[in-house]
Design a protein around this nucleic acid. Structure first.
Length: 475
RNA sequence: CGGGGCGUAGCUCAGCUUGGCAGAGCGCUAGCUUUGGGAGCUAGAAGUCGGAGGUUCAAAUCCUCUCGCCCCGACCA
């Protein structure tokens, strides 16, 4: 703990790895690409889960749980799905000391097992819509992994819904995308761009994939969540039909949507600085930490008494508060809580006690100010909300400063070197998309939803284009 | 799978070229002094030198095989 973090400007990936490990979010597990999520990191995930789960319930969804192991044959029923996922499947071939007749795959996502189940659950139009979510772990065998951003096993939620009409499925797809956008912006304090993926980036088996894209501190893009309109692809693959009021058998329409522990990586990279994490108050496992300061016992006793009283008041006010009474020097504690991104630090020493005050330090701004101890509990909720807003505003400004419209190939390449989001015209072909990636490493992150149509010429091929798309280098 | 690197104390690593008592820093334990921005001193505990085989009086060091990890390229929430 004594050493300083690598600076973001010196080596951003290294900074990320160090922060994640030294802030006690996670560490590497013995199996390549898998991670141990430590209590502080898991606390963050729990905060994310709680809020999202409430939002899912509020939009009519119910939780259920489907199994980890999926018969291999299920994966093969939807052509695009199997093609998309087969390279990253982990397969169980032996169990109970014997070779299995049919191998099981460890779920990379649960569409197949869920649609096999939905076939039995759905008979009538009265069974629709069917709105299911599950919190689960999944496994995708990745070549290159990074804690939270890409691990072979990760935690996520996956929503799976079935609808009577194409329109309802599309509404659901966009409704959940909006839930994700709201969550990212209002709770994670990260502004996100909503859009549609190109054919190339679309989920294997979907008709359309919608996404939220966020800008990280190193000006690279991160896909933070996806919502898919699956059309009737899985209904047809698994023969899921319902009887309409008229008695006609029709295939149902489907969606699926998910966010994962990758969100924690997004949180780290969207807000963190050279001193470590900066957590948004609404999700911070600890919103305020109290650091007592004293020399001898004659100072310790009254200071600790005052801290205990203060903490009781803060907790009564609904603030997640922690008393750091460890046998360490105050300066050491300050540095550690900054590393861990706690929004507010409260210092209480003999001088403060004599004045009936505390010193309050803010992680996101680095500012410190004196506050009356007995009115702090009443003021702190508003202070935390202001910090939440301040973080979001700063992220919005950062994104604005790193978003550009480009109209020529030279400008494209030049701007791309500096990072950020680039809005440019594209001729709509996969061939062009691939050539651009090959030459520049940039990909089309999405076709923005809220952008106006605008005639132009493809920045690469010069062919006509009806609208701009967003390019960026991405994680 | 191709290219590069590394396995020695909990962590980061030195020692290997030229074989000869198993080392340092951080962390940990105990004590004393300290405590408002990452403390100091003293004393300790801590190791199958990734594994197997070989050469040798003697192997962390040389040889052979093997296992694992990290980084860079082709895939991705």
């Amino acid at each position: 703990m004594a050493e300083k973090l690598t600076k973001q400007s010196d080596d951003y990936p290294r900074w990320y790895t160090e922060v994640v490990q030294r802030a006690d979010l996670a560490e590497h597990a013995p199996v390549k690409g898998s991670m141990i999520i430590k209590p502080y990191g898991y606390g963050l995930w729990e905060a994310i889960q709680r809020q999202l789960d409430d939002m899912f319930k509020a939009t009519g969804h119910q939780n259920a749980y489907f199994p980890l192991l999926i018969p291999e044959s299920f994966m093969k029923k939807e052509a695009e799905h199997v093609e998309g996922f087969s390279p990253e499947l982990a397969v169980v071939t032996h169990a109970g000391g014997k070779k299995l007749e049919e191998p099981y795959v460890i779920r990379p996502t649960s569409e197949t097992i869920i649609w096999d189940t939905f076939r039995r659950w759905i008979q009538s139009h009265r069974d629709l819509p069917l709105l299911i979510n599950q919190w689960a772990n999944v496994m995708r065998w990745e070549m290159r992994t990074r804690l939270f951003l890409r691990t072979t096993e990760f935690l996520w939620q996956e929503g799976h819904t079935a609808h009577a009409t194409a329109e309802e499925a599309q509404e659901e797809t966009l409704r959940m995308l909006e839930v994700y956008r709201t969550f990212a912006e209002d709770y994670m304090a990260i502004p996100v761009l909503t859009g549609v993926k190109t054919d190339r980036e679309r989920f294997a088996g979907a008709v359309n994939t919608y996404c939220i894209e966020a800008l990280m501190g190193d000006k690279k893009a991160l896909q933070a969540g996806t919502s898919h309109n699956l059309g009737q692809n899985f209904a047809k693959a698994f023969d899921v039909k319902y009887q309409t009021k008229e008695g006609v058998a029709e295939y149902v329409w489907a969606t699926s949507w998910g966010v994962s522990t990758r969100l924690i990586g997004a949180l780290v990279m969207a807000h963190g600085d050279d001193a470590g994490l900066i957590l948004p108050p609404r999700l911070a496992p600890i919103q305020a930490v109290v650091v007592p300061i004293f020399r001898k016992d004659d100072e310790k006793v009254p200071v600790m008494d005052a801290c205990t009283k203060l903490i009781a008041e803060l907790r009564a006010a609904g603030i997640r508060t922690h008393l750091d009474d460890r046998d360490q020097r105050p300066g050491w504690k300050f540095a550690e809580w900054e590393l861990k991104g706690v929004p507010v630090r409260i210092e209480m020493g003999p001088k403060d006690l004599a004045a009936g005050e505390v010193r309050v330090g803010f992680r996101h701004s680095g500012e410190k100010q004196q506050e009356k101890a007995d009115s702090l509990a009443a003021k702190l909720p508003a202070i935390l909300e202001a910090a939440q807003q301040g973080l979001f505003d700063r992220a919005v400004e950062f994104r604005k400063a790193n978003t550009h419209r480009v109209d020529s190939w030279d400008e494209f390449k030049e701007r791309l070197d500096a990072g950020g989001f680039l809005y440019a015209h594209w001729d709509g072909t996969t061939a062009t998309e691939e050539k651009i990636q090959k030459e520049t490493k940039a990909t089309i992150r999405c076709i923005p939803l809220d952008d106006d149509m605008e005639d132009g010429k493809c920045v690469f091929s010069g062919e006509p284009s009806k609208r701009r798309v967003m390019f960026a280098k991405a994680y």
